[in-house]
Simulated assay, not measured.
Amino acid sequence: MSDRPGPHRIPLATRAIGVITPSANLVVERVTAAVLADFPEVSAHYSRTPVRGSKDGHPDAYDLDGMLGAARLLGDAALDAIVWNGSKGASIGFAHDHALIATIERETGIRAATSMTAIESELRRLGLTRVAVVTPYRGDYQERLVATLAGEGLTVVAEAHAGVADNLAYMRVSETEIAALIRRVSAARPQVILTLCTNFPAAWVVADLERETGLPIWDSTLAGVFAGLEAAGIDPHPARAWGRLFEGDEAP
């Protein structure tokens, strides 16, 4: 008889998180699956909302029809939480994320969260206001994002962007280029570096660059996983290997 473990030995997930992701995104599922490897009791279930190309059909708000369609399908599974793993709130304002959460919860009866409300909550909890921002975006969108964060009371002391215009191409920015962008903004010594865009594969370099720079780096895709765990009432600390966002109560 083979000594290989059979399917019956795989831990049975008893908790479930629903994840809404942009339709052109391949990074969210990959990062979520990698992080949840530390949480065998938790399964992730995905639904998509239309986001494609270089033009946003709803530049100043969310496509609520798309969002709620995705949320309702997830709601059919009676999950523990639903999270929007997207960073658009950084460019249109956090109030839109709070309104989205309230609408999803009203429509589904399931607790909801977003990547950006998780980041906002941690910034406020720790009293952090001086941030640096790294994204894959082109310059005009980056300018809008920085202005929006300033309107939220944050001082952006440095920014760097890859200059990519197409949603599908964000995921193709290399880890080497992402690391270089992070190193560039770290010279300004912000209180925290934010890597924003959930189709931007920054999650894989966060822990190493935190050790190298001595600065916390909060990635929006990782923040979406963090938000989903917290909304489901699950301690996120077992994922601390993914960076200081998961470490808990200590200020950076």
Rank of each mutant, 00 (worst) to 15 (best):
G69Y: 03
P7W: 09
R240M: 04
G89Y: 07
L222P: 00
N85F: 04
R124K: 08
G86Q: 06
T213K: 06
D65E: 13
M171T: 15
V185P: 02
D140P: 10
A207V: 04
S220L: 06
S91I: 12
L79E: 02
W84Y: 15
R106S: 11
T129Q: 07
R125G: 10
Q191T: 06
L168D: 07
A239E: 11
R130A: 13
Q191M: 00
D56S: 14
A71N: 04
E105L: 05
R125V: 01
R184C: 05
A202E: 06
A44V: 02
R72F: 01
P50S: 07
D76T: 14
G224N: 01
V133E: 03
H161E: 08
E143L: 11
T21G: 07
V225A: 03
L154N: 08
I234G: 15
L196G: 14
T108D: 05
S115R: 12
R9H: 10
V185F: 03
N167A: 13
D97E: 12
I92L: 09
A70C: 02
V131E: 03
T32I: 00
D140K: 08
D235R: 08
V185T: 01
I20S: 10
A239D: 07
A239P: 10
L215G: 10
N85P: 00
R138G: 14
G66K: 07
P11C: 04
D219F: 02
V185N: 08
T135E: 12
V192K: 01
D219H: 04
A34D: 13
A33W: 11
I234R: 05
G109M: 06
R144H: 09
L64E: 14
V27M: 12
F226D: 00
G75E: 06
Y46E: 00
R144F: 02
G163H: 04
G109R: 11
P5H: 06
V192H: 04
M116V: 15
I101W: 13
V19F: 08
A203D: 03
A147K: 12
A90R: 04
T129N: 09
T221G: 03
E41W: 03
G18Y: 02
V134P: 06
T49H: 13
D208T: 09
T14K: 11
R211F: 10
L209M: 15
Y141T: 09
R244W: 10
E105A: 07
G151Y: 05
C197W: 01
P5K: 08
W204H: 08
D56P: 14
P7A: 14
D38M: 07
G18S: 15
A188Y: 01
S121T: 15
A112W: 02
P22V: 10
R130V: 00
E159M: 10
D3K: 12
L222T: 00
G233K: 10
T21E: 04
Q142D: 14
S47H: 05
H161K: 10
Q142P: 15
T49R: 02
E122A: 15
M171Y: 08
R15V: 11
V31A: 09
V192R: 01
F246L: 00
R72W: 08
S186L: 01
R130L: 01
S115L: 09
F39S: 04
A70V: 00
V51G: 06
L229E: 00
V83A: 07
D219N: 05
V19A: 09
